[in-house]
Design a protein around this nucleic acid. Structure first.
Lengths: 169, 169
DNA sequence: ACCTGAACACCGTTCAAGT
DNA sequence: ACCTGAACACCGTTCAAGT
């Protein structure tokens, strides 16, 4: 036996995070993950219900890390907006796992999603509709940037400045 | 032999479109597509270089259909914005294939992407930065709506009205 | 309690072989 | 020119069998 102790739930989580951040979501397969833990894929199912549970863990982690970054940002609309972009660009795989695959609500810690939503609403300082529009703007710009949809010569700093102007409307 | 003529390039395209629109991108496998054409998957490779070529065809089709819908919309910012949302919600799988998987630029008709970008810039009637922010806003709202990210009681019509107000800033 | 090999139903793709 | 079966390297997941 290669392992005497076997992989704990925590080791599974930390290796899946390392795999996600280094190679992306597509590379996060049960077989690749098992390799890193020096076990075979079927053994993972003794610790975890399935791949979804791992994805849900990463979503929960991503959401709380994101919330931390937003809380840490200076308390101005401009600073918060730039923090949103900076976090997403620095953590594209975590951003992807929380926003490009279905959110596994059943497996997420109670109140996590609603807490972040409330935070977004609070920091816009206005009504729900306004907050949702702001979120749409931030998410859309980030998503298009990560997807490489803007032309290479686009000045996205300028684009974000323009977008931030809109937020006060 | 089940087929006397064999599937033409056009039949491959139309069946892949039908498969995409009825069952979504994940169901658009070479084997499922081959089944619809009453051939085996390897036979597809005599007509098509691979799955990417089919995806590229669908992206080109989706982009031009979207451009058509935008052109047809009444010539006001509000009407254009609502047309953007309406098209995306009515064609979620086409929207996904053009915006949630990498754009296969090498395989797209010359000038298609830049043409649509130019159209978006033109209809905002302002500078590139403004146009990009507007696109970000529309795309973000649509993407979050399709992903089911807004709470069920959210009044998205109101959210869009609020968003449209921002556009004039 | 934990790990394993074998298996099942999938994927995209290649290739020698048939007509 | 077109289609095929068999194969390769992948997926997530199940399960009987081993320790």
């Amino acid at each position: 036996m290669a392992n005497t102790s076997g992989p704990t739930r925590e080791r599974i989580f930390s290796e899946s995070l390392a795999l996600l951040e280094s190679k992306g979501l597509a590379a996060l397969s049960m077989r690749n993950l098992a390799d890193r833990l020096h076990i075979k894929a079927p053994s993972l199912y003794k610790h975890v219900e399935g791949r979804d549970e791992i994805i849900a863990d990463l979503q929960a982690y991503g959401i709380s890390k994101f919330a931390e970054a937003m809380t840490a940002a200076k308390n101005s609309k401009r600073a918060k907006a730039l923090a949103y972009r900076a976090w997403a660009i620095k953590n594209p795989h975590l951003y992807e796992v929380t926003l490009k695959v279905p959110l596994l609500r059943d497996r997420l810690p109670e109140g996590l999603e609603s807490g972040v939503t409330a935070m977004i609403i609070e920091l816009t300082g206005k009504d729900h509709e306004h907050a949702r529009a702001v979120w749409g703007l931030m998410h859309g710009l980030v998503d298009l940037e990560i997807a490489g949809r803007f032309p290479p010569d686009a000045d996205l700093d300028k684009t974000w400045s323009r977008a931030i102007q809109m937020l006060n409307q």
